[in-house]
Write a protein that binds this DNA or RNA. Sequence first.
DNA 1: TCAAAAGTGTTCGATATACACCCATGC
DNA 2: GCATGGGTGTATATCGAACACTTTTGA
Lengths: 238, 238
Amino acid sequence: MKTSFIHTYVSVDCVVFGFEDDKLNILLVQRNVDRKGLKDLKLPGSLIYNEEDVDDAAHRVLFELTGIRRMSLKQFRCFASPDRANDPGDVKWLDVAYQPNINRLITVAYLSLCKVDRKLNNISKYKQTEWCPIDDVPQLPFDHNQIVKESLIEIRRWIEHSPSIVFELLPQKFTISQLHKLYEAIYNKSIDIRNFHKKVAAMSYVIALEEKQKDVSHRAARYYKFDKKAYNKLKTSI
Amino acid sequence: MKTSFIHTYVSVDCVVFGFEDDKLNILLVQRNVDRKGLKDLKLPGSLIYNEEDVDDAAHRVLFELTGIRRMSLKQFRCFASPDRANDPGDVKWLDVAYQPNINRLITVAYLSLCKVDRKLNNISKYKQTEWCPIDDVPQLPFDHNQIVKESLIEIRRWIEHSPSIVFELLPQKFTISQLHKLYEAIYNKSIDIRNFHKKVAAMSYVIALEEKQKDVSHRAARYYKFDKKAYNKLKTSI
DNA sequence: TCAAAAGTGTTCGATATACACCCATGC
DNA sequence: GCATGGGTGTATATCGAACACTTTTGA
């Protein structure tokens, strides 16, 4: 009787967002096994270790992926459907990548953000990683497509709660236009640019710099930066 | 090497909110083992079965607890600290309740809501269940106190997103005053009653009934009901 | 007639939305 | 001089917050 309780492996899977070509992209990695011809992509993830918290496992995955130690991340859901790992190809991959007879796998999904201009010095584990536009995500193994879908809802919630995290998707110096396009990409709708300027002006933690764009064939845009200290002061004062 | 991946049991724990005496309460159950004198309470929960999704496990726990089959519930976080089940008393309880040598336990926390006037016909499993005011929760095993704490934040988020769920905490017929006190309890602040009347009036799915209170020693309050169909129509039209 | 809770409107400030033209730059 | 994107202000609607008195009922 007691044996019917699940005794299982637990993994974390990370949806890492980046912003490129005015679009949201996510990081996908190549699976270890090659199936000829087809790119065989998945979300970066890993089984968790014995003495490891899930949050730590997610940090570890991201570090192995990007070389960045303490990326912002947010757990958003545990996926545990009994048949999420039933596809024969997925079962086989589990056998090769981890060990045979993993009959079931529960995963905890995380959201994270990364500047795409950051060089990803991934730590040997992944053959290849690539940014993939969110509207152009191929079919992924397990329930990774569903995880991606839900992560899009979650990223909006995250921003409502912590407006600062959008700046993790932009370079240190950015233009209003970049920020504007980022918001449009995240909310998937067009946002009036004049109202947007007002909105940014109201963010006391977005600081205008003297510096402007150079060598652009139109009026040069001013650069701005995100002031973390001002943001935190504001947050704690509320 | 591969053996260092976690291979573990997974449980669900449910924070069930009720509304009584103008306060939020949560349902606690008595652990199976008695420690003399002290009430030994915990959140209702269970290990999950082999072929069971976590959501289903949570539904099962709630059914065993209340006799209600499809309660609204919301997964809100996976708790997986390696030392969440390190307390000797907790280890011993796990041994007795489930089986020896559960060295680690990951849990997925759920939020749910229940009318306290509903008779809880709990299905034999729990010796005793009791409603406990949220401000008066005793020390609980594992990290259940933290789970309770986070559930309070989560219930607010849930209401923002799905205003209808508050009505699961009230009887079918309720007064504005009850609804008002419920909101005050959830947000833990006083809310201006006139503004609140306006707010309720703007909820097209809260329907005034002809019926009023009887035998009260003050002006009788009108009853209202929640109209689920009107609510759903509104939701889908947006 | 008193105690206790029910019910009711207006004003103000803040915030979101809609909307169109001139500016700077490189080619 | 023209194409390209940068930058700006005003008017209106909506929402939330503040605020005090009258009504109904049973005891």
